[in-house]
Amino acid sequence: MRAAGVDLGAVRIGVAFAPADAPVAVPYEVLERSGGRARDHRALAAMVTEMGAEVVVIGLPISLDGSEGPAAAGVRAEAEEIAAALEVPVVLHDERFTTVSAERMLAQQGVRGPARRRVVDKVAATVILQSWLDGRD
């Protein structure tokens, strides 16, 4: 199943992709927030269509104790808006530690400063999507 992974951030939206023939997530794109959520959602929908994704997996920021706070409520609300803009299912997936994991991977590869900021969101989306793919087995 072709899938898109999404890391919703306040400034950027990270996007990852997993092709149907290889259940491995890869970084795809970073979408800079435009200041208009509807515009951002249309841009994301265009990416999803371009990828041919059959499902979109959005990271849900759950607290360490397993509860959902204001950030999770915000992502749930935006995920509903995104689902309305898409013709494929949208699922939420626990994203605890994804940005930390992404930062650690980039640091190990020697990616620093501005270069890291440009890619960390799509790497976080990749971690979210890979976790979802691994959990399907």
Rank of each mutant, 00 (worst) to 15 (best):
V6G: 02
M51W: 06
V30M: 02
V15Y: 00
V90N: 06
V11T: 14
I62L: 15
V111W: 01
I58H: 00
V120H: 02
D40Q: 08
A84M: 11
E87T: 13
R96V: 05
V111E: 00
L86K: 06
V119S: 10
M47G: 06
G135T: 07
F17A: 03
L8E: 00
S67G: 10
I13K: 00
T98G: 06
P70W: 07
Q108C: 07
G135D: 14
V48A: 03
Q130A: 11
A83Y: 09
V11R: 15
Y28P: 04
P23K: 12
K122A: 09
V48G: 01
E80D: 13
F17T: 01
V127Y: 04
V119T: 12
D94C: 08
E32T: 07
D65K: 09
V90I: 09
M47W: 12
A73R: 14
A77E: 12
D65Q: 11
W132Y: 15
G135E: 11
Y28L: 15
G135R: 10
F97T: 08
T99P: 03
G59S: 09
G9I: 01
A125C: 07
A4C: 15
R116Y: 04
R136Y: 07
A72C: 10
R112G: 03
D137K: 14
R118E: 14
E29K: 10
A71L: 13
P61F: 04
D21I: 06
A53C: 09
F97D: 12
V111M: 04
A22F: 15
R33M: 00
A77D: 14
V15I: 15
A72F: 05
A25G: 03
